[in-house]
Simulated scan of single mutants.
Amino acid sequence: MVKQISAALFLLILVGFIVYNEIDKENEASESTSELTEYDVSGNTEQEGTAMTAPNTPGGLEVGDQAPDFELETLDGETIKLSELTGKKVILNFWATWCPPCKVEMPEMEKFHQEYGDEVEVIAVNATGTESNRSDVASFIEEEKYTFPIVLDEELKVNNDYQVISIPTTYFIGSDGKIQEPRKVGPMTYDYMLEVKDALE
């Protein structure tokens, strides 16, 4: 009788141990899949993608928040101060030359800027602190002939203020200086920008 109880206890402990191990393995698997995968694309800008992280990644400023003010230098050596644009609608885009999805949306941004630049300010904040060389930014913009303002975030302070955790990320600021539409993570289309333009006040 004692041997039967001992055997049953041993079997129960063994089953419990196996179940515990399986649950632990599943937890590790789910944790590893939920972690962001980072890609070094600094040497290859031809890679395809939609965004550097998933669009539903938590974080970032919310609708109704006051857009943090900043003053950054443009490629032309002038400065842009966000608070001086109060009264205008602003599309504030965060990007870098090494980001393939950013390159996908920039022609769309240029088309929008050419047609609606008098209604909406399109400002592209380059994450200059992540670039291998500042001159790469100027060369890229000149080569592609983009005309919307490019400002240089050398110390990534503005990226941090806007809690940008992946690029491209875009914020939509109303004439009241507040974020009026949910941020967009991933490349924008021309049609998407049209929708946002009409939604902003």
Score class of each variant (00 low, 15 high):
43 G>E: 12
43 G>A: 08
43 G>D: 10
45 T>R: 13
45 T>K: 06
46 E>W: 08
48 E>W: 07
51 A>C: 08
51 A>D: 10
54 A>H: 05
55 P>D: 06
55 P>C: 09
56 N>I: 11
56 N>P: 00
57 T>N: 04
57 T>G: 04
57 T>W: 01
59 G>E: 07
62 E>I: 09
65 D>S: 15
65 D>T: 12
65 D>Q: 11
67 A>P: 08
69 D>Y: 11
70 F>G: 14
70 F>S: 11
70 F>D: 11
71 E>V: 14
72 L>Q: 14
72 L>D: 10
72 L>A: 13
72 L>V: 09
73 E>R: 09
75 L>H: 05
75 L>K: 02
75 L>W: 10
76 D>G: 11
76 D>S: 15
76 D>V: 01
77 G>K: 01
77 G>E: 06
79 T>R: 13
80 I>M: 05
80 I>F: 05
81 K>V: 02
83 S>N: 04
83 S>E: 13
83 S>C: 08
83 S>I: 03
85 L>C: 05
86 T>P: 01
88 K>N: 15
89 K>S: 10
90 V>M: 10
90 V>T: 07
91 I>V: 15
92 L>V: 11
92 L>K: 10
93 N>P: 07
94 F>C: 14
96 A>E: 11
97 T>Q: 09
98 W>Q: 07
98 W>I: 06
98 W>K: 05
99 C>G: 04
99 C>H: 03
99 C>S: 07
100 P>M: 10
100 P>W: 06
101 P>V: 03
102 C>E: 04
103 K>E: 07
104 V>L: 08
106 M>A: 12
106 M>D: 07
107 P>T: 08
108 E>Y: 01
108 E>M: 07
110 E>F: 01
112 F>E: 04
113 H>F: 13
113 H>P: 06
115 E>H: 01
115 E>R: 01
117 G>M: 06
117 G>R: 01
117 G>V: 06
118 D>I: 09
118 D>K: 13
118 D>M: 04
121 E>A: 13
121 E>P: 02
122 V>E: 04
123 I>G: 06
124 A>V: 02
124 A>E: 02
125 V>L: 10
126 N>P: 04
127 A>N: 10
127 A>Y: 13
130 T>M: 14
130 T>S: 15
131 E>N: 07
134 R>H: 05
135 S>D: 15
137 V>S: 05
137 V>Q: 03
138 A>G: 04
142 E>H: 05
143 E>T: 15
143 E>H: 12
144 E>S: 12
147 T>H: 08
148 F>P: 04
148 F>W: 11
149 P>Q: 12
150 I>C: 11
151 V>I: 15
153 D>E: 15
153 D>R: 05
154 E>C: 09
156 L>N: 10
158 V>L: 07
158 V>K: 01
159 N>Y: 03
160 N>Q: 09
160 N>M: 07
161 D>W: 02
163 Q>R: 08
164 V>T: 00
165 I>E: 06
166 S>K: 00
166 S>G: 15
167 I>F: 00
168 P>Y: 01
171 Y>Q: 06
171 Y>P: 04
172 F>V: 12
173 I>H: 01
